[in-house]
């Protein structure tokens, strides 16, 4: 970082203006963000995930996630040969500090699975909310109105993926917002921003130029628990059959 004080003085006004534009919603990336123009999801490329836990830490820092609860977490699967029905899964502290190293297993395989809210288009959690405190936004993100939620936890019970929790201090439902405060400003989510291998990629399914479309056309992707028919929009590349 060889910026001298002089450089900084020259740069500052420009940087300040640029940062202001980010805070206001990056003009070049999202000119007048319109909710109906987007349909958000995510792509998880399992073979790229190295289980570093960057995403979990970034999510907690970005969204003030309380300790012991997770908007996103990483699981490590260990599957013995053909024994798909009995995977051994761990996620120590949500994978926040990574995973212990393991030696090669000649009879099995290891892999990481990052999890987050699937931003379901037919979400069971919003269906059961008695008061309309959680909802799918017009751009396809499942959000919680924490000023309206009464904390009944019915949505927590209804989520097949365990993505929701009751915030212990706020006493309302809390969950991944797909960094709604970032994606509406033309930024990517905190977890995608810090993912060193590109295992997580924010996807706008309504944007014909989004690389997600080319990817989906050329890869075998799956959603979690497809039998739940939730219209999940988090797509997993090379999802193993043992993952649940």
């Amino acid at each position: 970082m060889n910026i001298t004080r002089r450089h900084l003085m020259l740069l500052l006004p420009a940087a300040a203006v640029a940062w202001e534009s980010v805070l206001a919603g990056t003009p070049e990336a999202s000119p007048n963000y319109t909710m109906t123009g987007h349909w958000w999801g995510m792509l998880i490329d399992i073979p790229k995930c190295i289980g570093c836990g960057n995403c979990v830490r970034a999510c907690q820092a970005e969204n003030d996630v309380p300790d012991g609860f997770f908007r996103t977490w990483v699981e490590r699967y260990h599957v013995d040969d053909w024994n798909l029905a009995n995977p051994q899964v761990i996620s120590p502290d949500g994978g926040k500090e990574g995973f212990p190293s393991v030696a090669e297993d000649p009879d099995g395989k290891y892999f990481f699975v990052p999890k987050l809210c699937n931003q379901c288009a037919d979400s069971p959690c919003t269906q059961v909310c008695p008061v309309g405190a959680t909802f799918i936004s017009p751009d396809g993100v499942v959000l919680v109105d924490q000023k309206y939620c009464m904390g009944c936890a019915y949505c927590v019970q209804a989520c097949p993926y365990g993505c929701r929790y009751i915030h212990p201090q706020k006493r309302v439902a809390d969950k991944c917002t797909l960094c709604y405060h970032r994606i509406t400003k033309g930024l990517t989510t905190a977890c995608c921003e810090v993912c060193p291998t590109g295992a997580r990629q924010l996807a706008d399914l309504k944007n014909p130029n989004d690389p997600i479309h080319a990817f989906l056309k050329t890869h075998s992707v799956q959603v979690l628990k497809p039998q739940m028919a939730t219209g999940a929009k988090v797509f997993y590349n090379q999802l193993d059959g043992s993952v649940r």
Partner: peptide, 23 residues
């Protein structure tokens, strides 16, 4: 829809912690 429309803007206004590499 069946929710408080203003909630969307409130959620979108949450503070950023990661500036983003573009910045």
């Amino acid at each position: 829809g069946h929710y408080r429309g203003a909630a969307i803007a409130e959620i979108a206004a949450k503070p950023l912690h990661y500036a983003g590499h573009q910045t």
